[in-house]
Simulated scan of single mutants.
Amino acid sequence: MENRIVVGGALIHQGRVLAARRSAPAEVAGRWEFPGGKAEPGETQQQALERELFEELGVRARALNRLPGEWPIRAGLVLRIWAAELLEGEPQPLEDHSELRWLGPDELSAVDWLEHDREVLPEVARLLTAAC
Rank of each mutant, 00 (worst) to 15 (best):
W113M: 13
L127N: 10
A48G: 06
R118Y: 06
L49S: 04
P122C: 10
L87R: 00
V120N: 04
D106G: 06
A63R: 00
L67Y: 04
A39F: 11
L128A: 08
D112Y: 09
I81F: 09
P68V: 09
L121C: 06
G69V: 12
R60D: 01
L127D: 08
L86I: 00
A83V: 13
L53N: 06
E56A: 10
I81K: 11
G104E: 01
E99A: 15
G89S: 08
W113F: 14
E50P: 07
A131S: 10
E70K: 12
D106L: 04
R126Y: 04
Q47L: 11
E123Y: 06
R51C: 08
P105F: 03
P91C: 00
R80E: 15
H116S: 15
L94D: 02
V59Y: 01
E70Y: 14
L53Y: 02
D106W: 05
L53M: 14
K38T: 13
L64F: 01
E115Y: 13
L87T: 01
G58A: 12
F54E: 13
R62T: 04
W82T: 13
D96R: 07
Q46R: 14
V124I: 08
W102M: 00
T129N: 10
D117F: 09
D106A: 11
E40F: 14
S109V: 09
E107G: 03
A39Q: 12
R51P: 05
I73V: 12
D112L: 14
L79H: 14
E99D: 14
T44K: 15
A84L: 12
L57S: 02
R60F: 00
V120R: 02
R126F: 02
V120M: 05
V120L: 04
A130P: 03
W82D: 12
D106I: 04
V59M: 00
R51E: 09
P105G: 06
L77T: 12
D112H: 14
E85V: 00
G89L: 03
H116F: 14
H116E: 15
S98D: 14
A83T: 15
A39D: 07
L100S: 04
L94H: 04
E99K: 11
C132K: 13
L86G: 00
R101E: 05
P91H: 00
Q46C: 08
L94G: 02
R118T: 09
G104R: 01
G69F: 06
C132W: 10
W82A: 12
L87A: 01
E40W: 15
V78E: 12
G76Y: 13
L127V: 09
L103D: 03
G104F: 01
L121I: 11
A75W: 05
